[in-house]
Design a binder for these strands. Structure first.
Length: 311
DNA sequence: AAATGTTTACGAGCAC
DNA sequence: GTGCTCGTAAACATTT
């Protein structure tokens, strides 16, 4: 095994899936969203392995972006011309990686049909639906009431799903990998303000009134774009050595991959904190047309897929 | 034309 | 064995 810090690492394929790599890139960005080209760039910058065979892996990566519901496509602002859209992480994909490890997903993130419908019909409310879930959706009393108290803080999955401050943070959890100061993310409230700002869309009066009536504290759709400092201290696999030892509980963790084993006692991953939340089009790319995937009965909308007719 | 995005298909590997 | 994730290839559509 090559030792961390040695160049011999760089020629080898990183132990991360394309989904992981993409998530890293997005999380590492200030605005929690990146155009495709920047995702490529991030990966190539940090993982020399991917400086070759670009056609191959970039095709795979694009496939992953489109195919996986955990990635959402955000249109460019009118004043930001360029090719392609921005890509962000879906707010609900926080527990996608087991124990926060980016080595392998244990759960495939997939939107429910209802969420697709909601996304289609009312993206903004869909967004708030997710914000509500962020604040209490995974607990016993979800919904606006639960959301009111916490929404202003835009708490992340790290503090919600896990439910334990100082919960386990896997060495390959995203905050460790990208070396983020997650305290900043926890309280910075990136999602809505960031993306709204990015899009440059004025907050519709309708939305304002809805927000103000339902969640008075959220009326602050301001320009609080948080520029979060990002550590540049990357180990060969992009693992921040600093981040590896940044542990809320004060524990230190080894800078080595840890075998992933199901640990029911552990909460969902704390990894994807500070998740982005799309405003105008908070839909995964696949939301418009449901995907095939491994469940052909799911998400074909009202259309009857030929495959279903044959089966 | 090139980049970007979508979809389908197949096989490998892993966990249960 | 089954079902899942993942990687890859490829065809095709859309956008710049």
């Amino acid at each position: 095994m090559p030792r961390p810090g040695k160049n011999s690492y760089s020629d080898q394929k990183p132990p991360y899936s394309y989904i992981s790599l993409t998530a890293m890139a997005i999380q590492n960005s200030t605005e929690k969203m990146l155009p495709l080209s920047d995702i490529y760039k991030f990966i190539m910058d940090r993982f020399p392995y991917y400086r070759e065979n670009t056609q191959r892996w970039q095709n795979s990566l694009r496939h992953n972006l489109s195919f996986n519901d955990c990635f959402i496509k955000i249109p460019r602002r009118p004043d930001q011309p360029g090719k392609g859209s921005f890509w962000a992480l879906h707010p609900d994909c926080g527990d996608m990686f087991e124990n926060g490890s980016f080595l392998r997903r244990r759960k495939r993130f997939k939107l429910l049909r209802a969420e697709h419908m909601a996304c289609k019909s009312s993206p903004m409310m869909h967004y708030f639906h997710h914000q509500g879930k962020l604040s209490g959706g995974h607990h016993e009393h979800p919904g606006p009431a639960a959301a009111v108290g916490r929404l202003p803080h835009f708490q992340s999955y790290g503090s919600i799903n896990c439910g334990q401050s100082g919960g386990f943070k896997h060495p390959f959890a995203i905050e460790n990998i990208i070396g983020r100061d997650y305290k900043g993310v926890m309280t910075s409230g990136l999602p809505i303000t960031s993306v709204m700002h990015h899009l440059g869309y004025p907050v519709p009066a309708q939305l304002s009134s809805v927000v103000n009536s339902m969640w008075p504290h959220v009326g602050m759709l301001s320009d609080s774009m948080s520029a979060i400092p990002v550590s540049s201290e990357y180990a060969p696999f992009g693992v921040s050595m600093k981040g590896l030892y940044h542990h809320a509980s004060g524990q230190t963790l080894p800078a080595v991959p840890v075998p992933i084993k199901p640990t029911p006692s552990m909460g969902p991953m704390p990894g994807l904190s500070g998740l982005p939340s799309g405003p105008a089009q908070l839909c995964s790319s696949s939301s418009m047309l449901e995907k095939n995937g491994s469940d052909p009965l799911e998400g074909k909308g009202n259309a009857i897929h030929p495959a279903l007719l044959l089966s």
